[in-house]
Amino acid sequence: MDNIMGLLKVRVKRGINLVVRDVMSSDPYVTVSMGNQKLKTCVIKKNCNPEWNEELTLSVTDPSLPVKLTVYDKDIFTKDDQMGDAEIDIRPYLECLEMGLENLPTPTTIRRFYPSKDNCLADESAVVWQNGKITQELIVRLRNVETGEVELQLYWIDLRDSK
């Protein structure tokens, strides 16, 4: 436990235009993993635009490891079908935390990120100082699938100084 830098709170908000994997719809859930940690949301029945609004917490020991997001369709009698995946590099977000910007007016946009071939962003993303914390809102485009996006929010809890 001594090598944990902090906790990354990942709020999985919603899925957007997810693929159909069953006859008429899908029963999607999301797994969020980093290193050997793997967490998952609840299953939303028969919905290709689900709203999870669930917060999952990862312990971060190595910020160079990506956060991996995978969407699955829950099946009862067969293996769950994959509905796409994405990776999030948290290092740019953590760089904003290191700036020591706690005395800014709220809300203040600290940095913006744009979709590129090097990330899974579907739209512009901003790191924002608001109400005493730095968060990042993002929409990721799922890979290895015809269509689908997932909206997320990141929030960091630093454990390095709390000993």
Results as ranks from 00 to 15, higher is better:
126 A>S: 13
114 Y>Q: 10
123 D>K: 06
116 S>M: 07
101 L>N: 11
131 N>L: 07
133 K>C: 10
134 I>D: 00
116 S>H: 00
109 T>C: 12
158 D>M: 01
85 D>K: 12
120 C>M: 01
151 E>S: 13
155 Y>S: 12
145 V>G: 12
142 L>R: 01
84 G>R: 00
160 R>A: 14
85 D>Y: 06
93 Y>R: 02
128 V>H: 00
107 P>D: 13
129 W>F: 15
161 D>E: 05
99 M>K: 13
96 C>I: 05
123 D>F: 08
148 G>N: 00
118 D>H: 13
135 T>L: 02
125 S>T: 05
91 R>G: 04
146 E>S: 15
147 T>P: 02
158 D>N: 12
132 G>L: 04
160 R>H: 11
95 E>C: 10
121 L>N: 03
119 N>P: 06
153 Q>L: 03
94 L>D: 07
132 G>F: 05
104 L>K: 09
150 V>F: 04
156 W>V: 07
134 I>E: 06
85 D>R: 09
138 L>I: 09
112 R>T: 15
161 D>V: 07
85 D>W: 09
114 Y>H: 10
134 I>S: 06
144 N>L: 01
110 I>F: 02
157 I>L: 10
88 I>V: 14
140 V>N: 05
148 G>Y: 02
153 Q>I: 13
130 Q>K: 15
85 D>P: 05
102 E>S: 11
93 Y>N: 08
149 E>Y: 03
159 L>M: 13
96 C>Y: 04
127 V>R: 04
92 P>H: 10
127 V>I: 13
142 L>Q: 00
110 I>N: 01
145 V>E: 08
88 I>M: 06
87 E>K: 11
120 C>Y: 02
103 N>D: 14
131 N>W: 08
132 G>Y: 01
128 V>N: 04
102 E>Y: 14
128 V>S: 02
127 V>H: 03
96 C>N: 07
157 I>D: 12
162 S>Y: 14
101 L>G: 07
90 I>N: 01
117 K>S: 14
123 D>S: 12
94 L>T: 10
100 G>V: 08
144 N>I: 03
143 R>H: 13
99 M>W: 03
159 L>W: 08
91 R>V: 12
92 P>F: 02
103 N>C: 11
108 T>E: 04
159 L>A: 11
104 L>C: 12
143 R>C: 15
140 V>I: 15
86 A>D: 08
99 M>T: 08
123 D>H: 08
